[in-house]
Simulated assay, not measured.
Amino acid sequence: MRFIPTRFHGILDYIVGIIMIIAPWVLDFSDNTAATWTLVIAGIAVLLQTVFTDFEVGLVRRIPMQSHLMVDFGLGVLLAISPWLLNFDERVYLPHLILGVFSILASLTTHRVPSHSYKAEHTSPDHIRNM
């Protein structure tokens, strides 16, 4: 059941990407290199992907929304298992697990296609001519 609009998903991506990047310092586990860099790299990936996705809040608009959602799913799985995969689960695991599961759920519940008004606006002959 997909009920999250793509615009809302994109806004969440910007917020969650920033949260991922700052979480190691806010939650006091920045002394663990693997745990820190896993979230920082994931956060940067989320932000870059959002900037490059073809939807309401994308800036460059080259990645189709369906591809964005597939990457979100894969990133969520990797993030959720990363504490055990990279052996930092005894120090910290909840932020990675929670953000990973969140990413998986968001990928499964977000519309695959941006709103009709967005698509109509960005596929009109005038828009294509101005590209």
Results as ranks from 00 to 15, higher is better:
23 A>V: 07
81 I>A: 04
16 V>L: 14
104 I>E: 06
33 T>M: 06
128 I>S: 00
106 A>H: 06
38 T>W: 10
99 L>D: 06
31 D>E: 13
1 M>D: 01
15 I>V: 15
3 F>P: 06
67 S>L: 15
94 L>T: 09
82 S>P: 15
105 L>G: 05
110 T>M: 01
62 R>H: 12
72 D>T: 03
48 L>E: 04
85 L>G: 05
65 M>K: 13
96 H>T: 12
56 E>C: 05
63 I>T: 13
22 I>S: 03
2 R>F: 00
51 V>G: 03
44 I>A: 15
20 M>S: 13
118 Y>I: 08
34 A>I: 00
28 D>H: 10
19 I>P: 01
49 Q>F: 06
41 I>G: 09
49 Q>W: 07
75 L>K: 03
46 V>D: 13
108 L>C: 04
46 V>R: 07
110 T>Q: 01
61 R>G: 08
32 N>Q: 14
11 I>T: 00
92 V>E: 15
58 G>M: 11
49 Q>E: 05
118 Y>S: 12
120 A>Y: 01
61 R>Q: 14
77 V>Y: 01
87 N>R: 12
20 M>V: 02
115 S>H: 04
127 H>A: 15
44 I>R: 07
81 I>C: 03
11 I>M: 02
54 D>H: 12
121 E>A: 10
103 S>H: 07
86 L>R: 15
101 V>T: 09
131 M>R: 11
84 W>Q: 09
129 R>K: 15
82 S>M: 08
99 L>H: 07
5 P>Q: 00
77 V>K: 04
34 A>H: 12
17 G>W: 14
15 I>D: 04
127 H>C: 11
131 M>N: 14
4 I>Q: 01
22 I>L: 10
54 D>S: 12
108 L>Y: 05
18 I>Q: 03
61 R>I: 03
113 V>N: 04
85 L>P: 05
72 D>I: 02
99 L>Y: 12
116 H>L: 13
75 L>R: 11
3 F>N: 01
95 P>Y: 00
13 D>V: 03
95 P>K: 03
129 R>Y: 10
102 F>S: 02
79 L>P: 14
10 G>E: 14
110 T>D: 01
123 T>C: 10
112 R>M: 06
91 R>I: 15
108 L>I: 07
16 V>W: 14
18 I>C: 05
130 N>Q: 10
17 G>V: 07
122 H>K: 09
10 G>D: 15
69 L>G: 11
8 F>H: 08
118 Y>C: 08
102 F>R: 01
105 L>C: 08
4 I>T: 06
24 P>D: 01
108 L>Q: 06
59 L>G: 13
58 G>K: 09
51 V>I: 02
69 L>E: 10
119 K>N: 12
77 V>E: 02
72 D>E: 04
131 M>Y: 12
118 Y>F: 12
97 L>I: 03
40 V>R: 08
89 D>H: 09
122 H>T: 11
39 L>F: 01
37 W>I: 05
54 D>Y: 10
106 A>C: 12
23 A>K: 07
30 S>M: 10
101 V>P: 06
34 A>G: 04
32 N>E: 14
1 M>H: 06
31 D>I: 09
110 T>A: 00
112 R>A: 11
99 L>W: 13
42 A>Y: 07
98 I>G: 04
115 S>F: 06
75 L>G: 14
114 P>T: 06
77 V>C: 04
37 W>D: 12
2 R>C: 00
